[in-house]
Simulated scan of single mutants.
Amino acid sequence: MLRSRYDVCTSAKTVLLVYAHQSAGSFNAAVKTAAVDELKKQGCRVLVSDLYEVKFKATATEDDITGAVKNPEHFCYGNETMLAWQEARLASDIVDEHKKLKEADLVIFQFPMYWFSVPAIMKGWMDRVLTLGFAYTLEKRYSEGIFRDKKAMLSFTTGSHETMFSSNGINGDMNVTLWPIQNGVLNYCGFQVLAPQIFWAPTHLSPEAREGLLEGWRTRLQGLLNEAPLAFPPADIFDKGKGFQLKPEVREKQADSPFGLTVGHHLEKPLPPQSQMKAGV
Rank of each mutant, 00 (worst) to 15 (best):
D7Y: 05
V8L: 13
V15K: 06
V15S: 05
L16N: 13
L17C: 09
V18L: 06
V18P: 14
V18D: 10
A20S: 14
H21A: 11
S23G: 08
G25T: 11
S26Y: 02
D37F: 08
D37C: 06
L39I: 05
L39V: 05
K41N: 14
K41Y: 06
Q42P: 03
G43F: 12
V48H: 04
L51F: 06
V54L: 10
V54I: 15
K55I: 01
K57S: 14
A58W: 08
A60F: 11
E62F: 01
E62H: 06
D64Q: 09
G67A: 05
G67K: 06
K70H: 09
H74T: 12
F75R: 07
F75Q: 02
C76E: 15
T81C: 08
A84V: 10
W85T: 03
R89A: 06
I94M: 10
V95T: 14
V95D: 06
K99N: 09
K100E: 04
E103L: 15
D105Y: 00
L106Y: 10
V107E: 08
I108G: 01
Q110Y: 04
Q110N: 13
Q110I: 11
F111T: 07
F111R: 02
M113G: 00
Y114A: 05
S117V: 01
S117W: 01
A120H: 12
I121P: 07
K123T: 09
G133Q: 02
F134P: 03
F134E: 00
A135Q: 02
T137V: 08
E139H: 04
R141P: 00
E144W: 01
E144C: 09
F147K: 03
K150Y: 09
L154S: 12
F156T: 03
T157Q: 07
T158E: 12
S160C: 03
H161W: 08
T163Y: 08
S166I: 04
S167K: 14
I170L: 11
N171Q: 15
G172M: 01
D173S: 05
M174W: 07
T177G: 02
W179D: 13
P180C: 12
I181V: 15
Q182H: 08
G184S: 08
G184T: 01
V185T: 13
L186V: 11
G190M: 08
F191C: 08
V193R: 00
P196A: 02
Q197P: 00
F199G: 12
F199D: 11
W200V: 05
W200I: 07
T203I: 03
H204V: 07
P207K: 14
A209D: 15
R210L: 09
E211W: 00
G212C: 02
L214Q: 11
L214A: 13
E215P: 00
W217H: 15
R218F: 10
R218E: 12
L221Q: 03
L224Q: 06
L224T: 08
L225W: 11
N226Q: 13
A228W: 03
P229S: 13
L230D: 04
P234N: 12
I237K: 08
I237L: 02
F238K: 02
K240P: 08
K240L: 10
F244W: 15
Q245F: 02
K247H: 10
K247I: 06
V250T: 11
E252F: 07
G260D: 10
V263G: 10
G264L: 10
G264F: 06
G264Q: 02
G264V: 04
G264T: 04
L267E: 12
E268L: 15
K269M: 05
K269R: 13
P270N: 07
P273M: 03
S275H: 11
K278C: 05
A279F: 09
A279H: 09
V281A: 05
